[in-house]
């Protein structure tokens, strides 16, 4: 405990409390008046007209946005969402007729599907009996629930189409050639995962359509050589309906509650995680392999080096 401070001695001519408060308020008002004089307020409003000058804006965006080359480059390079882009690209590389834009659209659809998928997860229980009821609830009672489900469904179909078209363009332009071979292989894995994402989502409404599609699909697994109980050499390898690869996929010997849970986890967590990692690799390699492949200057047959060397002589201008 601190010792009590001795009280300040009162001034000789005592002033009433009310007077002191009045005096103090006067002082404060004077201070505000000078601060809030017309010119000052005007200047502040002028500043607000250009939000890029505010502290708030600067704290978020870090760099000024001006139509100067430096500012434009920094706008891309210092932004976490845009940093996968280079600052500058080949003039022809923005031509839609060359790229078809399908890779980017596929990625955008992946984002849309993640977004709608998360919203759908709020209304869905991966358990037998409840799952179908949840879909009915979603379709009939949840505001915009039907739209949400439709967007997830059609977005998935669209993503399969755009993935195929992306691959088709890469083949037609020879974009898989050195040094992009590995990125092509990553792309093939991503295509497979896209199809598997679609397939695992098919069972989740737990309706007749999904049930029988998954039954047909996993029955094929039953016939895997060595790993399925009905496949060639499956029996010899010790496979039964209770330990083969189909059992591992379904979590049982029939399509039931465990299968629903497993496809839910594959669909919502496991495959999207793997896809995200591979997407990062895929985009990173696009940059590291020298950006998108073209449109490159055409090469001539007469410029091919003799067999034994895979390189082409430098093209004109190089």
């Amino acid at each position: 405990m601190e010792p009590e401070k001795p009280e300040q001695p009162e001034p000789k001519t005592p002033v009433g409390l009310a007077t002191r408060v009045r005096e103090g308020m006067k002082e404060d008002l004077e201070a505000i008046k000078t601060k809030a004089n017309k010119d000052n307020v005007k200047a502040e409003i002028e500043n607000l007209k250009d939000p890029t000058k505010t502290q708030l804006y600067k704290s978020i965006f870090r760099v000024k946005h001006e139509p100067t080359p430096r500012s434009r480059s920094l706008g891309v390079l210092t932004n976490v969402f845009l940093h996968l882009h280079p600052a500058k690209i080949n003039r022809d590389a923005v031509r839609f007729s060359y790229t078809w834009g399908m890779g980017g659209i596929t990625f955008y659809l992946f984002i849309v599907l993640t977004f709608t998928g998360i919203l759908l997860m709020f209304y869905y229980h991966p358990s037998k009996g409840q799952a179908y009821q949840d879909i009915l609830y979603l379709e009939n009672d949840v505001p915009f629930g039907k739209l949400l489900r439709n967007m997830h469904r059609w977005g998935a179909h669209l993503m399969v189409i755009t993935t195929w078209l992306h691959m088709f363009r890469v083949v037609l332009t020879g974009s898989y050639k050195t040094p992009r071979e590995f990125n092509w292989a990553v792309g093939v894995v991503l295509l497979t995962l896209t199809l598997l994402l679609s397939f695992t989502g098919y069972l989740l409404p737990d309706d007749q359509l999904g049930f029988w599609a998954v039954t047909v699909g996993t029955n094929m697994a039953k016939a895997s050589p060595m790993l399925g109980n009905e496949g060639p050499f499956g029996a010899q390898a010790g496979m039964t309906p209770y330990n083969d690869v189909r059992f591992a996929l379904l979590g049982g010997s029939i399509v039931d509650a465990n299968a629903l849970l497993r496809s839910y986890i594959w669909h919502c967590i496991a495959i999207p995680t793997i896809v995200s990692v591979l997407l990062a690799v895929h985009f990173w390699r696009v940059r590291k392999d020298g950006g998108i492949s073209g449109p490159a200057p055409v090469m001539l047959e007469s410029e091919m080096r003799a067999a034994g060397s895979r390189a082409v002589k430098g093209a004109a201008g190089k």
Partner: peptide, 11 residues
């Protein structure tokens, strides 16, 4: 695909 031509353009 050992063909060195046709990398980055339609042909």
């Amino acid at each position: 695909d050992a063909n060195p031509l046709g990398s980055g353009y339609y042909t």
